[in-house]
Amino acid sequence: MAQTVAPPEAAERVPPLRRRQRQLPWPLNIYQTAVGKKYVMAVTGVGLLGFVIVHMIGNLHLYEGPSQINEYAEALRDLGGHLVPRTLILWVMRIGLIAMFGLHIHSAWSLKEISRRSSPKANWVSGNKRYPGGQDYVAVNFASRTMRWTGPIIGLYVLFHLADLTWGWWLGGDYIRGDVYHNVVESLSSIPVAIIYIVANVALSVHIYHGMWSAFQTLGVNNPRFNHLRRGLATVIAGAILVGNLSFPIMVQAGLVA
């Protein structure tokens, strides 16, 4: 039994998990918050999605024949024509892409950490889950639950893809710099490589399916007239990317592109 004048501060019985850090100058302080990080993730996601779409459409030149796709690749290096040094604009775009990748990954990682610290493991005599009795999800779908798996798969695939077709690491003597058509066909005709491409592109589309709908939500695109279209749009775009990107390894393997 005790009596005190001032009881312990009731508010502090459930202390915050995170205290406010030192504020960075605007606009960097936005990135210090979870909603800000999500916003960055959404914006970079939209940027990367734009790249994926353009990249996929550009690759369709493959079906026009070797000279067309090789010209397309050359045109990319020659963006800006004689006004700027050759490949400068391409490099600017590449650096932009790398930065977006970096931010996308960093924000995802830090948000995951925030959520991990917010979800306790049940205080249990044995076992170590949040709900030892199991949780019965209703709304989550495969795409939303696997973002943290499809993301790393895509990251690894990007490195593989660069090593494969940009640096030509394992095509070795078969790799001909500048002959895109040749390199693609040469690489994708190997069955393990084709499988890697197929798996990675399925992961990419699944990632985009949830990521795109999620970006609408995060960016606050919320107009009652269009809300019902958000899921549909995400499905259509993810589907188109899936079909387009899967067509390359399949066509090569089927011998229709050689």
């Binding site: 915050p16 918050t33 990080k37 999500k38 917010s118 639950r145 919320n222």
Partner: peptide, 27 residues
């Protein structure tokens, strides 16, 4: 944010909500 995790737009919350508060409010 100082107490809770970060939304990833799963939509479980709306499904569990006894008053069916819409996910649109999060946007």
């Amino acid at each position: 944010e100082s107490f809770f995790g970060s939304c990833t737009n799963h939509g479980e919350c709306t499904e569990a909500c006894p008053k069916e508060i819409s996910l649109d409010f999060i946007a």
